[in-house]
Design a protein around this nucleic acid. Structure first.
Lengths: 236, 236
DNA sequence: CAGTGGTCTAGACCACTCA
DNA sequence: GAGTGGTCTAGACCACTGG
């Protein structure tokens, strides 16, 4: 574990909460105790806990302390799409082609944010169903989080399916937008330039550590996303 | 304006950005300049700007400075989006116009599925933020589930906001797709025909009984959806 | 009313990056 | 190389609130 100290403290506390080591409702150590435990100033501990509070993992009460939050009743699930499984489930023939594979260092700040040690696997691939292109995928994998990835033949195994098995996530963020296909994308997807496409950008973390970041572009007329929610907390 | 100083600084900077006073891409004052302007320490200014960066309003580059980010509206899929609340929270002026209102019987099998007794309220309206069209909305409301709806003046109250208060849901399904704007849609949204749009179709139920079904069409370049998940339940 | 978190200061060193 | 943001310190006072 590397990076700023407040980040390490954050990850450390988050892990204990997500693992259930610290149960919901339980008080976590006071700031001054954590200050002693990590050997740093109170500001640094405070920054880490404020981040936890901002994400809703803890609630803070003056005079009383900081407590692990109750998991929200409104559980919601948008399945992390495993394209291969989806296509197969629909009874279609799944096709997959690796377009590019590179191992390299993180080049931008955002990429460094994903991979602390800086090593990335940079992939591009194309998914198809019954021969028709279904999604163009660009994916970055943090090798620090999934070191085995550099021995996997992604010419055969789609990275999404592999990661789902190998590197379980604890947090994910999906960003969904409508975009017009650029010429290169359009050619690979068999569309006209400018055709409406759905772009899903997903970042996943395990215990505060970035695992993967992926951009998937779907032809608008061949794919839509379905998200089901229930306020009762069932996971369908 | 009251509250903590870092909060006031945040609100101040946010206002200048959202109002367009500081344009996207423009560099905002350096931290040490703001320190002088507000007569406080750098930590305090830093906290305010970090908050802006966290919310995506600015991007920060070492040695270069802090810059106003390109604006993009976004919303969590997890929350049942209340457009009015979202727009207001971003500090923008919310605008609303009712385009059509009809009370009628369910005509298709799908519509009968929504409204058990067959009576429907059929609405069309347009949402805008700071005068720019944000979403075109077509909505069906089952009068059996929300009988008070036929006495509400939806020329003033957006139906989504009203329903959220009056008819709590227990289940919801979102269907998200990318579509090309048809000519009538494009005209109302101020787009070119064929421009990429995000279409969200949402159906909600209360205890197995259909409540409402809505189609919202967003300009692809002005809106995207964000969904955050944690394997422990949804956050934020 | 004592102890918590909330906030703030006035410094400091560092990594990075642009000029 | 110089100046930015990133981080951290070792204090401080305050508001709130639970005991």
């Amino acid at each position: 574990m590397s990076g700023p100290l407040h980040r390490r403290i954050y990850a450390d506390l988050e892990r204990r909460i997500l693992s259930g080591d610290w149960a919901p409702g339980q008080r976590i150590p006071f700031e001054h105790e954590l200050t002693a435990a990590y050997g740093c100033s109170r500001m640094t501990v405070n920054k880490a806990i404020s981040e936890l509070a901002g994400r809703g993992l803890v609630t803070r009460r003056r005079r009383a302390g900081t407590f692990v939050a109750q998991p929200k009743a409104h559980a919601a699930v948008l399945a992390i799409p495993d394209l291969r499984a989806e296509v197969v489930e629909r009874g279609q023939a799944y096709g997959y082609r690796l377009l590019e594979r590179r191992e390299r260092d993180a080049a931008t700040e955002e990429e460094s944010d994903l991979a602390r040690d800086g090593r990335l696997l940079d992939l591009a691939c194309l998914h198809s169903a019954d021969g028709a292109p279904l999604a163009l995928e660009r994916r970055l994998i943090a090798l620090s989080a999934a070191p085995e990835a550099d021995r996997v033949d992604f010419g055969v195994t789609p990275p999404g399916s592999w990661l789902l098995d190998q590197a379980p996530w604890t947090e994910a963020e999906n960003r969904i937008a409508a975009v017009e296909a650029e010429s290169a994308e359009a050619r690979l997807l068999g569309l006209k330039t400018g055709a409406a496409c759905l772009r899903v950008e997903r970042r996943t973390w395990r215990d505060g550590q970035g695992v993967t970041r992926v951009w998937q572009t779907f032809p608008g007329d061949r794919y839509d996303l379905i998200a089901r929610f229930s306020s009762r907390g069932d996971r369908r």
